[in-house]
């Protein structure tokens, strides 16, 4: 709490404005879905659209409340976030999904996730970590497949066993 507790300066808080805006959009989406559901004839006393309608209204009110607080509390100075390291971690997660989608298998995809995360935290080399991660994940794969009979996504490496 303490390190990120921002200090207040002039002007509205842009970040929270964006959040308020996002809440308003979410409220519209949920509300639209509620409206669509209310058109469907079901037998039950309270239909599937009732709760979405309430939640949509709540979200709309919260969008308003967040916008008001953004103005009242003023702009906040938040420490800058470092984009580079974050990109590595996100690249690791996205890369894992892409590699799995292309059938690279659990060991390779998750080895990459490990290497990219380590790199994001400033530890290289990516290749060494990738190899270590892939070996570790291969062992995990074997334990799961043999010990638990649970099939994790298989790729060229996993098909060797």
């Amino acid at each position: 709490m303490s390190d990120s507790r921002p200090t207040s300066t002039a002007g509205p808080d842009k970040g929270r404005f964006v959040i308020a805006f996002a809440l308003a959009i979410l409220s519209l989406v949920v509300g639209w879905d509620a409206w669509r559901l209310s058109g469907i004839n079901t037998y039950s006393a309270v239909g599937p659209g009732a709760f979405p309608a309430i939640i949509s209204a709540g979200l709309a009110l919260l969008a308003l409340a967040n916008a008001v607080e953004a103005v009242r509390e003023g702009a906040q100075e938040r420490p800058r976030d470092e984009i580079g390291p974050m990109a590595w971690v996100l690249g690791g997660l996205i890369g894992q999904i892409v590699l799995l989608a292309f059938g690279a298998g659990f060991a390779i995809a998750t080895g990459w996730l490990f290497a990219a995360t380590a790199k994001g935290f400033g530890r290289g080399p990516v290749w060494g970590h990738f190899l270590a991660g892939a070996v570790l994940c291969f062992v995990i794969y074997v334990v799961f497949a043999k010990g638990l009979q649970l099939a994790l996504p298989a790729g060229p490496l996993e098909r060797l066993i």
């Binding site: 690791g92 490990f114 994940c137």
Partner: peptide
């Protein structure tokens, strides 16, 4: 930390 967080994500 690089290994700890890498491990957490794995």
């Amino acid at each position: 930390r690089p290994w700890l967080y890498g491990g957490i994500l794995v």
